[in-house]
Protein backbone atom coordinates (compact mmCIF):
# COMPACT_ATOMS: atom_id res chain seq x y z
CA UNK A 1 0.00 0.00 0.00
CA UNK A 2 1.03 3.60 0.19
CA UNK A 3 2.76 3.33 3.54
CA UNK A 4 5.97 1.36 3.52
CA UNK A 5 7.71 2.84 6.54
CA UNK A 6 7.50 1.32 10.00
CA UNK A 7 4.97 -1.33 10.99
CA UNK A 8 4.23 -4.85 9.87
CA UNK A 9 2.64 -5.67 6.55
CA UNK A 10 -0.96 -6.85 6.65
CA UNK A 11 0.04 -10.43 5.95
CA UNK A 12 2.60 -10.51 8.78
CA UNK A 13 0.20 -8.73 11.12
CA UNK A 14 -2.46 -11.34 10.42
CA UNK A 15 -0.09 -14.11 11.46
CA UNK A 16 1.00 -12.26 14.61
CA UNK A 17 -2.64 -11.59 15.54
CA UNK A 18 -3.75 -15.20 15.15
CA UNK A 19 -0.74 -16.75 16.90
CA UNK A 20 -1.64 -16.12 20.58
CA UNK A 21 -5.13 -17.59 20.21
CA UNK A 22 -3.85 -20.66 18.43
CA UNK A 23 -1.07 -21.10 20.96
CA UNK A 24 -3.45 -20.88 23.91
CA UNK A 25 -5.97 -23.28 22.43
CA UNK A 26 -3.25 -25.70 21.36
CA UNK A 27 -1.56 -25.70 24.78
CA UNK A 28 -4.56 -25.79 27.09
CA UNK A 29 -7.19 -27.58 24.98
CA UNK A 30 -5.55 -29.68 22.28
CA UNK A 31 -2.44 -30.81 24.15
CA UNK A 32 -4.33 -32.20 27.19
CA UNK A 33 -6.59 -34.21 24.91
CA UNK A 34 -3.58 -35.80 23.24
CA UNK A 35 -1.84 -36.23 26.59
CA UNK A 36 -4.94 -38.10 27.81
CA UNK A 37 -4.49 -40.60 25.00
CA UNK A 38 -0.94 -41.16 26.26
CA UNK A 39 -2.03 -41.55 29.89
CA UNK A 40 -4.78 -43.96 28.92
CA UNK A 41 -2.23 -46.51 27.67
CA UNK A 42 -0.77 -47.08 31.12
CA UNK A 43 -1.80 -49.04 34.18
CA UNK A 44 -1.88 -47.09 37.45
CA UNK A 45 -2.34 -48.04 41.05
CA UNK A 46 -3.64 -44.94 42.79
CA UNK A 47 -1.47 -42.29 41.13
CA UNK A 48 1.66 -44.42 40.60
CA UNK A 49 2.38 -45.57 37.06
CA UNK A 50 2.82 -49.36 37.08
CA UNK A 51 3.21 -50.61 33.54
CA UNK A 52 2.33 -50.15 29.91
CA UNK A 53 -1.17 -51.48 29.41
CA UNK A 54 -1.90 -51.12 25.73
CA UNK A 55 -5.60 -50.83 25.13
CA UNK A 56 -6.64 -52.71 28.26
CA UNK A 57 -8.09 -49.55 29.87
CA UNK A 58 -10.34 -49.17 26.86
CA UNK A 59 -11.48 -52.78 26.81
CA UNK A 60 -12.15 -52.52 30.52
CA UNK A 61 -14.20 -49.34 30.00
CA UNK A 62 -16.18 -50.81 27.13
CA UNK A 63 -16.92 -53.90 29.21
CA UNK A 64 -18.06 -51.84 32.18
CA UNK A 65 -21.81 -51.57 32.76
CA UNK A 66 -21.27 -48.26 34.50
CA UNK A 67 -19.92 -46.75 31.28
CA UNK A 68 -22.91 -47.94 29.27
CA UNK A 69 -25.39 -46.78 31.86
CA UNK A 70 -23.70 -43.34 31.97
CA UNK A 71 -23.81 -43.20 28.17
CA UNK A 72 -27.48 -44.18 28.20
CA UNK A 73 -28.37 -41.53 30.79
CA UNK A 74 -26.41 -38.88 28.88
CA UNK A 75 -28.22 -39.69 25.64
CA UNK A 76 -31.66 -39.83 27.27
CA UNK A 77 -30.97 -36.55 29.03
CA UNK A 78 -29.76 -34.90 25.82
CA UNK A 79 -32.64 -36.04 23.63
CA UNK A 80 -35.41 -35.26 26.10
CA UNK A 81 -34.05 -31.95 27.36
CA UNK A 82 -33.13 -30.59 23.91
CA UNK A 83 -36.51 -31.63 22.49
CA UNK A 84 -38.43 -30.01 25.35
CA UNK A 85 -36.28 -26.88 25.22
CA UNK A 86 -36.83 -26.58 21.51
CA UNK A 87 -40.63 -26.91 21.70
CA UNK A 88 -40.97 -24.56 24.69
CA UNK A 89 -38.35 -22.14 23.36
CA UNK A 90 -40.09 -21.96 19.99
CA UNK A 91 -43.42 -21.33 21.73
CA UNK A 92 -41.90 -18.50 23.80
CA UNK A 93 -40.19 -17.01 20.74
CA UNK A 94 -43.38 -17.03 18.65
CA UNK A 95 -45.31 -15.41 21.49
CA UNK A 96 -42.70 -12.73 22.03
CA UNK A 97 -42.47 -12.09 18.29
CA UNK A 98 -46.18 -11.31 18.09
CA UNK A 99 -46.88 -9.50 21.30
CA UNK A 100 -46.53 -5.74 21.44
CA UNK A 101 -47.26 -4.98 25.05
CA UNK A 102 -44.68 -6.17 27.56
CA UNK A 103 -42.16 -7.46 25.06
CA UNK A 104 -39.25 -5.46 26.51
CA UNK A 105 -39.97 -6.72 30.01
CA UNK A 106 -40.22 -10.35 28.90
CA UNK A 107 -37.05 -10.08 26.89
CA UNK A 108 -35.23 -8.88 29.99
CA UNK A 109 -36.71 -11.58 32.23
CA UNK A 110 -35.76 -14.30 29.77
CA UNK A 111 -32.08 -13.55 30.30
CA UNK A 112 -32.24 -14.23 34.02
CA UNK A 113 -32.32 -18.06 33.98
CA UNK A 114 -29.47 -17.91 31.45
CA UNK A 115 -27.27 -15.64 33.54
CA UNK A 116 -27.38 -17.47 36.87
CA UNK A 117 -24.92 -20.30 37.56
CA UNK A 118 -26.22 -23.80 36.80
CA UNK A 119 -25.19 -24.81 40.31
CA UNK A 120 -27.67 -22.30 41.73
CA UNK A 121 -30.45 -23.56 39.46
CA UNK A 122 -29.56 -27.09 40.56
CA UNK A 123 -29.72 -26.24 44.28
CA UNK A 124 -33.00 -24.38 43.79
CA UNK A 125 -34.70 -27.26 42.00
CA UNK A 126 -33.11 -29.79 44.34
CA UNK A 127 -34.83 -28.19 47.30
CA UNK A 128 -38.09 -27.63 45.43
CA UNK A 129 -38.27 -31.28 44.35
CA UNK A 130 -36.88 -32.64 47.63
CA UNK A 131 -39.16 -34.26 50.21
CA UNK A 132 -38.18 -31.62 52.78
CA UNK A 133 -39.46 -28.94 52.61
CA UNK A 134 -41.50 -30.51 49.79
CA UNK A 135 -42.54 -27.38 47.91
CA UNK A 136 -43.51 -29.10 44.65
CA UNK A 137 -45.22 -31.91 46.53
CA UNK A 138 -47.29 -29.44 48.52
CA UNK A 139 -48.28 -27.45 45.41
CA UNK A 140 -49.52 -30.59 43.67
CA UNK A 141 -50.71 -32.37 46.81
CA UNK A 142 -48.37 -35.32 46.38
CA UNK A 143 -47.58 -35.96 50.03
CA UNK A 144 -44.06 -37.34 50.46
CA UNK A 145 -43.41 -38.31 46.84
CA UNK A 146 -39.68 -38.83 46.45
CA UNK A 147 -38.75 -37.26 43.10
CA UNK A 148 -35.02 -37.44 43.64
CA UNK A 149 -34.96 -40.79 45.42
CA UNK A 150 -35.96 -43.17 42.63
CA UNK A 151 -34.77 -43.97 39.11
CA UNK A 152 -36.80 -42.37 36.35
CA UNK A 153 -38.24 -39.50 38.40
CA UNK A 154 -34.74 -38.41 39.35
CA UNK A 155 -33.93 -38.17 35.65
CA UNK A 156 -37.14 -36.25 35.14
CA UNK A 157 -36.21 -33.72 37.84
CA UNK A 158 -32.78 -33.16 36.28
CA UNK A 159 -34.24 -32.75 32.80
CA UNK A 160 -36.85 -30.37 34.21
CA UNK A 161 -34.22 -28.17 35.86
CA UNK A 162 -32.26 -28.04 32.60
CA UNK A 163 -35.34 -27.17 30.56
CA UNK A 164 -36.21 -24.41 33.02
CA UNK A 165 -32.76 -22.87 32.72
CA UNK A 166 -32.22 -23.24 28.99
CA UNK A 167 -35.58 -23.01 27.22
CA UNK A 168 -35.50 -19.19 27.59
CA UNK A 169 -32.04 -19.15 26.00
CA UNK A 170 -33.31 -21.18 23.04
CA UNK A 171 -36.24 -18.73 22.82
CA UNK A 172 -33.76 -15.87 22.60
CA UNK A 173 -31.84 -17.45 19.73
CA UNK A 174 -35.03 -18.36 17.84
CA UNK A 175 -36.53 -14.91 18.43
CA UNK A 176 -33.48 -13.36 16.79
CA UNK A 177 -34.04 -15.68 13.84
CA UNK A 178 -37.76 -14.84 13.69
CA UNK A 179 -37.03 -11.15 13.53
CA UNK A 180 -35.04 -11.60 10.33
CA UNK A 181 -38.13 -13.03 8.59
CA UNK A 182 -39.87 -10.22 6.66
CA UNK A 183 -43.48 -9.89 7.84
CA UNK A 184 -44.61 -9.52 4.20
CA UNK A 185 -44.05 -13.24 3.73
CA UNK A 186 -46.39 -14.38 6.48
CA UNK A 187 -48.84 -11.63 5.55
CA UNK A 188 -49.00 -12.72 1.92
CA UNK A 189 -49.58 -16.30 3.10
CA UNK A 190 -52.42 -14.91 5.20
CA UNK A 191 -53.87 -13.20 2.11
CA UNK A 192 -53.60 -16.49 0.26
CA UNK A 193 -55.85 -17.99 2.91
CA UNK A 194 -53.31 -19.98 4.92
CA UNK A 195 -54.39 -20.80 8.47
CA UNK A 196 -52.32 -20.17 11.56
CA UNK A 197 -50.67 -23.62 11.60
CA UNK A 198 -50.14 -23.62 7.85
CA UNK A 199 -48.32 -20.30 8.09
CA UNK A 200 -46.16 -21.67 10.87
CA UNK A 201 -45.41 -24.95 9.11
CA UNK A 202 -44.95 -23.80 5.50
CA UNK A 203 -43.60 -20.28 5.91
CA UNK A 204 -42.09 -19.55 9.31
CA UNK A 205 -40.35 -22.83 10.18
CA UNK A 206 -38.59 -23.33 6.81
CA UNK A 207 -37.28 -19.76 6.97
CA UNK A 208 -36.21 -20.29 10.55
CA UNK A 209 -34.26 -23.42 9.62
CA UNK A 210 -30.72 -21.98 9.98
CA UNK A 211 -31.49 -20.49 13.40
CA UNK A 212 -33.12 -23.76 14.52
CA UNK A 213 -30.17 -25.86 13.40
CA UNK A 214 -27.63 -23.64 15.11
CA UNK A 215 -29.65 -23.59 18.33
CA UNK A 216 -29.94 -27.38 18.23
CA UNK A 217 -26.21 -27.78 17.62
CA UNK A 218 -25.28 -25.57 20.56
CA UNK A 219 -27.80 -27.16 22.88
CA UNK A 220 -27.00 -30.76 21.93
CA UNK A 221 -23.27 -30.37 22.41
CA UNK A 222 -23.90 -28.58 25.68
CA UNK A 223 -26.40 -31.15 26.97
CA UNK A 224 -23.99 -34.00 26.23
CA UNK A 225 -21.56 -32.37 28.69
CA UNK A 226 -24.06 -32.32 31.56
CA UNK A 227 -22.28 -32.30 34.91
CA UNK A 228 -23.41 -29.53 37.27
CA UNK A 229 -27.08 -30.53 37.55
CA UNK A 230 -26.31 -34.19 38.18
CA UNK A 231 -23.48 -33.49 40.62
CA UNK A 232 -25.65 -31.21 42.76
CA UNK A 233 -29.09 -32.81 42.46
CA UNK A 234 -28.35 -36.53 42.78
CA UNK A 235 -24.58 -37.00 42.74
CA UNK A 236 -25.18 -39.60 40.04
CA UNK A 237 -27.38 -41.85 42.17
CA UNK A 238 -30.54 -43.55 40.87
CA UNK A 239 -29.27 -44.16 37.34
CA UNK A 240 -28.49 -40.50 36.75
CA UNK A 241 -24.71 -40.74 36.36
CA UNK A 242 -23.65 -38.84 33.23
CA UNK A 243 -20.44 -39.39 31.27
CA UNK A 244 -18.90 -36.22 32.73
CA UNK A 245 -19.74 -37.29 36.29
CA UNK A 246 -18.31 -40.76 35.65
CA UNK A 247 -15.01 -39.41 34.29
CA UNK A 248 -14.66 -36.94 37.16
CA UNK A 249 -14.94 -39.82 39.67
CA UNK A 250 -11.63 -41.25 38.49
CA UNK A 251 -9.77 -37.99 39.03
CA UNK A 252 -10.28 -37.20 42.70
CA UNK A 253 -12.55 -39.68 44.44
CA UNK A 254 -10.99 -42.93 43.16
CA UNK A 255 -7.91 -41.63 41.35
CA UNK A 256 -6.84 -43.65 38.32
CA UNK A 257 -5.28 -41.44 35.62
CA UNK A 258 -5.07 -44.32 33.17
CA UNK A 259 -8.64 -45.52 33.36
CA UNK A 260 -10.00 -41.98 33.79
CA UNK A 261 -8.16 -40.84 30.67
CA UNK A 262 -9.48 -43.79 28.69
CA UNK A 263 -13.02 -42.82 29.72
CA UNK A 264 -12.40 -39.14 28.98
CA UNK A 265 -10.99 -40.01 25.55
CA UNK A 266 -14.03 -42.13 24.74
CA UNK A 267 -16.29 -39.29 25.89
CA UNK A 268 -14.30 -36.81 23.84
CA UNK A 269 -14.58 -38.88 20.65
CA UNK A 270 -18.27 -39.41 21.20
CA UNK A 271 -19.22 -35.79 21.87
CA UNK A 272 -16.92 -34.28 19.25
CA UNK A 273 -18.21 -36.90 16.79
CA UNK A 274 -21.85 -35.96 17.38
CA UNK A 275 -20.92 -32.27 17.16
CA UNK A 276 -19.10 -32.77 13.85
CA UNK A 277 -22.02 -34.71 12.39
CA UNK A 278 -24.18 -31.70 13.24
CA UNK A 279 -21.71 -29.27 11.71
CA UNK A 280 -21.62 -31.46 8.62
CA UNK A 281 -25.40 -31.27 8.37
CA UNK A 282 -25.23 -27.51 8.81
CA UNK A 283 -22.28 -27.26 6.42
CA UNK A 284 -23.08 -24.24 4.36
CA UNK A 285 -25.02 -22.48 7.10
CA UNK A 286 -22.19 -22.54 9.58
CA UNK A 287 -18.48 -22.92 8.91
CA UNK A 288 -18.47 -21.88 5.29
CA UNK A 289 -20.99 -19.14 5.91
CA UNK A 290 -18.60 -17.76 8.50
CA UNK A 291 -15.76 -17.82 6.01
CA UNK A 292 -17.82 -15.73 3.65
CA UNK A 293 -18.87 -13.08 6.13
CA UNK A 294 -15.62 -11.20 5.62
Amino acid sequence: MTQRGSGLSERALARVFVAPSLLLMALVALFPVLYAVGLSLFEYSRRRRESFAGLSNYTEALGDDRFWSALWFTLVFTVTSVAAEFVIGLGFALLMNQAFRGRGLTRAAILIPWVIPTVIAAQMWFFMFNVTPGFINSVFGLGDFSWLGQPGWATFAIVFADVWKTAPFVALLLLAGLQTIPSELTESALVDGAGRWQRLWYVTLPLLRPAILVALLFRTVDALRVYDLVAVMTGGAFDTESLSVLVQQYVVRTPDPGYGSALSTLTFILILGIGLVFVRLLGRDLAIGRGETR
Binding site: V28, V33, R225, Y227, S244, P257, T267, F268, G275, A287
Partner: peptide, 25 residues
Protein backbone atom coordinates in the same frame (compact mmCIF):
# COMPACT_ATOMS: atom_id res chain seq x y z
CA UNK B 1 -8.79 -18.98 6.80
CA UNK B 2 -11.35 -21.75 6.43
CA UNK B 3 -9.09 -24.29 8.09
CA UNK B 4 -8.55 -21.89 11.01
CA UNK B 5 -12.27 -21.26 11.41
CA UNK B 6 -12.96 -24.98 11.34
CA UNK B 7 -10.29 -25.51 13.99
CA UNK B 8 -11.78 -22.83 16.22
CA UNK B 9 -15.22 -24.36 15.74
CA UNK B 10 -13.86 -27.80 16.65
CA UNK B 11 -12.39 -26.45 19.90
CA UNK B 12 -15.79 -24.96 20.74
CA UNK B 13 -17.20 -28.49 20.49
CA UNK B 14 -14.63 -29.98 22.94
CA UNK B 15 -16.30 -31.39 26.05
CA UNK B 16 -14.55 -29.83 29.07
CA UNK B 17 -14.50 -33.17 30.85
CA UNK B 18 -11.97 -34.44 28.29
CA UNK B 19 -9.47 -32.04 29.87
CA UNK B 20 -10.12 -33.02 33.45
CA UNK B 21 -7.97 -36.17 33.90
CA UNK B 22 -4.97 -35.02 31.82
CA UNK B 23 -4.93 -31.40 33.05
CA UNK B 24 -5.24 -32.61 36.63
CA UNK B 25 -2.03 -34.62 36.19
Amino acid sequence: RLLLLTGVLAVSLFPPVALVPPLYE
